[in-house]
């Protein structure tokens, strides 16, 4: 059976291979996909060559040119089986210059990253709730004020490990929470995907 890494590589070889790869990648469950054969031989503590972070400089066809925060450029190729996230599953058309991203895939010999997953503007911040309105949660994150927007039909809260609920009214001022969401580039604002609260 072809490995997930082989499938990603084959997706770059041609249109026919890409279709095969996309189908096979899609057949893996989401958690099983992440359990599948990570690259061996990367020392714990070292940079992962199959991972990239930074901000998009340009989008051309199926390729993202990304400037890493460490000022290293990454060329990231989106293939048929690539999953993209921006507050939820999206298509490549939602990737914009200026977006921040994390990407995981397979580093090709020419340095390009064949993407398995791309997370656009994703943030995962913890902090104290300073204020709450129906539309916003104001968060104190290490002294930094972050305005978290409730997105109707999308934002959910998970209280004490219970089921996800669209009702965020149970959040309380002073509570410590974790907000997973999508950053609005060049602002201190985030659209909420999930709020985790322990109590």
């Amino acid at each position: 059976m072809a490995s997930r890494r082989d499938l990603l590589k084959s997706a770059l070889l041609g249109a026919g291979a890409g279709v095969v790869a996309a189908t096979a990648l899609g057949s893996l469950g989401p958690e099983a996909a992440f359990a599948a054969e990570p690259r061996l031989g990367v020392d714990p503590g070292a940079a992962d060559p199959d991972f990239a972070e930074g901000r998009i400089r340009s989008v051309k066809d199926d390729t993202l040119l990304v400037l890493g925060s460490n000022l290293v450029f990454h060329t990231i190729r989106v293939v048929g089986g690539t999953s993209l996230w921006k507050l939820g599953p999206v298509g490549l058309d939602q990737a914009r210059p200026g977006d921040g991203l994390y990407a995981r895939g397979v580093r090709m010999p020419d340095g390009m990253l064949a993407a398995e997953s791309v997370w656009l503007n994703i943030v995962n911040v913890k902090g104290h709730v300073k204020n709450i309105t129906r539309e916003k949660v104001h968060l104190d994150h290490k002294g930094q004020d972050i305005v978290c927007h409730v997105v109707a039909g999308t934002s959910v809260a998970i209280h004490a490990g219970g089921p996800a609920s669209g009702d965020l009214s149970v959040l309380r001022v002073g509570q410590h929470v974790q907000v997973l969401g999508a950053w609005r580039p060049d602002t201190n604002e985030v659209d909420i995907a999930t709020v985790f609260s322990p109590h």
């Binding site: 020392d43 940079a47 991972f51 972070e53 925060s69 460490n70 995962n124 201190n188």
Partner: peptide
């Protein structure tokens, strides 16, 4: 287990710093 960002970064992570050990980077296995 959850995840956090550190090192040079964008967005709310940009002020995070390199952690208590001085070596932390979002792109490293740490």
């Amino acid at each position: 287990v959850s995840w956090f960002c550190c090192g040079t970064a964008w967005g709310p992570c940009s002020s995070t710093g390199r952690g208590a050990c001085g070596t932390c980077n979002s792109g490293s296995l740490q």
